[in-house]
Design a binder for these strands. Structure first.
Length: 334
DNA sequence: AAAATCCGCAACCGCGGGAGA
DNA sequence: ATCTCCCGCGGTTGCGGATTT
């Protein structure tokens, strides 16, 4: 491993920054700004490379930096944004004022480690029961718009009609591609008008790859995503369909698992790594007995949010035009 | 109390892309 | 059109404090 091209000088220092170095850098930046980072070390009297100075400033010394623990709202926003844009930390950070990409990345990575080590950890009462996805990120303008809406959602707990429209447009676009993914009679035809539930869907089961008993499906639905219905919930040995993998091009699908099986409240819907990986789901399936989800597991899985169980009746409400099962945090619905 | 292990976080590294020569 | 330089990003490493054994 070499050093930066700008760090070839022998006297470049590495490692932790001393308070004196911090002071020098702050003094220089506040006085002169940082037009060219490669010039900063020399002009500031620092034996560091420009890159190191930039990193120190951006991640630590910047006056508008916000330190301390992430709030529940920030956590939810990170989750939502990550579901849309993937590991684009800088992009996510741009929606969290005062937070750095590095901080968010570290937070995320620690969280993943925690999830791996303790898959059955209980959810906090204030946080959404979602974990993460590493699906291929989408890079469309629509995703950016959706991300912007989600960012705004941090300040406004309820989506406005306009915001919902933006999200819906993004999701509709995602759902519309490719047509064959929508399957059924609609394949090859113009995509049917997409009517979405009142909130952005976060989980989608792909029932194209399984063949549940016909009595458990909804023949009226023109698409394959939500054939896992209220009736299916009553089936003791129903095979959960896999979650939609990559959901076409636009949207990163989120996988699902029983992350909170020991949650004392019995509210345990959680998400795991998705987008083709599904490693945690696989692990969960093994724990549950070879791909078969028993009734109790389904009870854990099918949660509407942390406080409200997803019953056949409210699922039916969702299902009127819904394309997915929704798993939300306690504040996600009005 | 000491050693081992875990975990959070700051910093480093390589790479890709944009701008300018 | 090509090359070089620099910036910004995501992935990774390693230090040091906290926790566990």
């Amino acid at each position: 491993m070499g050093h930066h091209s700008c760090c070839n000088q022998q006297k470049v220092k590495r490692g932790l920054w001393s308070p004196e170095e911090d002071e020098k850098l702050i003094r220089y930046i506040t006085t002169h700004g940082y037009g060219c980072w490669s010039e900063v070390p020399e002009k500031a009297g620092l034996q560091r490379c420009g890159k190191s100075c930039r990193l120190r400033w951006i991640n630590y010394l910047r006056p508008d930096i916000r330190r301390g623990r992430f709030t529940a709202e920030e956590e939810k926003l990170i989750i939502s944004l990550h579901a849309i844009v993937g590991n684009r930390w800088a992009h996510i950070a741009s929606h969290l004022p005062g937070r750095t990409d590095n901080e968010i990345k570290n937070y995320w990575n620690s969280w993943i480690k925690k999830k791996i080590r303790k898959p059955a950890v209980a959810n906090t009462p204030t946080s959404s029961s979602v974990t993460m996805t590493t699906s291929p990120p989408c890079s469309t303008a629509a995703s950016d718009a959706a991300a912007a809406v989600l960012g705004h959602h941090l300040q406004t707990p309820v989506f406005s009609a306009a915001e919902q429209h933006q999200l819906d447009a993004f999701i509709s676009q995602s759902l519309a591609l490719p047509p064959t993914k929508l399957g059924g009679a609609a394949a090859g035809q113009d995509s049917p008008p997409v009517t979405l539930p009142p909130h952005c869907p976060f989980f989608m089961f792909d029932t194209t790859s399984v063949s549940p008993p016909s009595s458990l499906t909804s023949p009226a639905l023109p698409h394959p995503f939500l054939t896992f219905t209220a009736a299916a919930m009553d089936a003791p040995s129903y095979h959960l369909p896999p979650l939609v993998d990559g959901i076409g091009i636009g949207m990163s699908a989120m996988d699902c698992s029983l992350g909170g099986e020991s949650d004392n409240n019995g509210h345990a819907a959680s998400m795991a790594n998705g987008g083709g990986g599904g490693w945690e789901k696989q692990e969960e399936e093994e724990q549950l007995g070879q791909e078969q989800w028993d009734d109790e597991s389904a009870q854990h899985l099918l949660m509407w949010d942390d406080d409200q169980e997803l019953t056949p009746s409210n699922l039916e409400a969702m299902e009127s035009g819904a394309h997915s099962l929704l798993f939300m945090g306690p504040n996600d619905h009005a």
